[in-house]
Nucleic acid binder design. Structure first.
Lengths: 283, 283
DNA sequence: ATGCCTTACGTTATACGTAATTATT
DNA sequence: AATAATTACGTATAACGTAAGGCAT
């Protein structure tokens, strides 16, 4: 029976319109291609070309065969890609979070616990995280509440407190704590991809936010400008403070959250390493 | 990229459960199969087996690959069969008729006119013939009326007259003509596959018909028994008469039919040979 | 000890390229 | 003359089989 390569040659001949052109495309000699096509015909027992001494054209059978062969080659390609895809996803541990901070600690821990896995992290909204956990998109998710889902277990994973990050010469820099509304109307520096924190910005409707994508540039702006910005206790724990700026806690209730790590109970065995780590996190 | 044969080996291994068994099934040596599987894995860049020193088992990737490969092989098989099918049907001229007699003359004529074609004949009802002509199942059909179909042309093709075929010692053997009802209640010899003629038998509700499938046996029964039977002018023209039996025409109007050959106008060119023959048939 | 997979090595078969041939435009 | 397919012939790659080896049950 013909092999995929044989069908590939036929498809190439059909596309190019002549043996000579197809042979060039296939990087084989034209006599070799001529032989292959005769062999293909004899193997399936059907003539695929009308042959004049000088010219060779697909007949009805050949056109049908080339059409179907093209589809077969696509399927063969898809087969390989699907197997590779499954292999890749079996080596990938996907973690979703409603905010970036929990991932800063989880990702390196997971990398250490599962050295053969690729750790993939995503920040998105709580609804997507819950449905993604259930449909297998995520192995682990981090939320600001304990989800009540069938077959889903949950662990506490500390919290995060939002602060204003003010230059020391800012009028409010000396306060012990502030409301979000206290800085409403000023221009503020902001990072992108803040997860659910972005929802809190509606509490400051008159504020103009200057979003800086680039990490290094954002740091420079913090240092060089006198614009207020946000930070959190978790950011400070990771990066340390900054000379010239002070963090003032925000007392709005929405500015303090507790995190919860959720996973499907059926994955408890596989995730025992992370579970142990997260369980010991608050303790 | 892997070839079909490579996938076939994988499917065989999946089915047999071990290299040794699969190698036997594939009629190759087991080391050759071992190499092929390693090559397959390296070609797609995905491990398909869990290998202990002594044992080899498909892993998740391998199971998926084997499953998809099996489908691919089916598709490859279907491709060849479909091309062969088209080739065969392009070499086959299908003729349908509402009765067998017209085919006795048409089939040999077509065989002579189109020596490279296979002539396929079918006897069925008029409805199937008309729809079959339109959907391409039949190239030519023979009916007892001139069909009024869009894009269909039609030629007269003589007629056929039903007769009783009576032993000379039968009480009615001397009659010049008879009604079907005249023999109602007797036991009669009958061939199968008579086309529309079978519809006429309802005019003899009390008759018991002895159906003989076998051609030679039917002839012997005609000769040996004194049971009445049917014949037609067209049968007599083909076979000649039979000593010991006489044919008595049936005067019922349904016992005399005229035949018409119909074909799609678009096929007039391709069918010019038959058309010439049928046109000259009545002349 | 037996079964199953792997490694090593020599062999063969099949598809390839080059060159020559034929026929058509 | 130029283009395109076929035929002929020598070559090379790649898959094969046999034989040997290792590690389980």
């Amino acid at each position: 029976m013909p092999e995929l390569y044989d069908w590939e040659k036929l498809v190439s001949v059909a596309r190019c319109g002549s043996l000579t052109a197809a042979a060039e495309e296939l990087l084989i000699s034209q006599p070799a291609l001529s032989r292959s096509m005769r062999k293909l015909e004899s193997e399936i027992g059907v003539e695929l070309f009308t042959r004049t001494k000088n010219r060779m054209e697909l007949n009805d059978n050949g056109r049908l065969a080339a059409e179907l062969a093209r589809k077969l080659l696509d399927e063969a390609d898809l087969l390989v890609r699907r197997v590779r895809q499954q292999d890749r996803s079996s080596r990938t541990l996907c973690v979703g979070s409603c905010a970036p901070a929990p991932l800063w600690e989880l990702a390196p821990v997971l990398g250490g616990l599962y050295p053969e896995m690729t750790i993939s992290t995503t920040v998105t909204d709580a609804g997507s995280l819950e449905s993604g956990l259930l449909d297998g998109t995520y192995e682990l998710i981090v939320l600001t509440y304990a989800p009540e889902l069938e077959g889903v277990d949950c662990l506490s994973f500390g919290g995060e407190r939002l602060c204003f990050f003010l230059p020391i010469n800012h009028p409010l820099a000396g306060e012990k704590s502030l409301r979000m509304s206290d800085l409403n109307g000023e221009t503020m520096l902001l990072r992108p991809n803040l997860g659910f924190w972005e929802d809190l910005l509606s509490a400051m409707p008159d504020t103009h936010f200057l979003v800086q994508e680039e990490d290094y540039a954002f740091g420079e702006l913090l240092r060089a400008s006198s614009l207020p910005a946000f930070t959190t206790d978790r950011v400070l724990r990771r990066d340390g403070g900054m000379s010239g700026r002070v963090a003032v806690p925000i007392s709005d209730s929405a500015a303090s959250v507790d995190y919860f790590v959720a996973f499907r109970s059926s994955r408890r065995r596989r995730l025992s390493g992370v579970i142990r780590y997260v369980s010991g996190y608050t303790a």
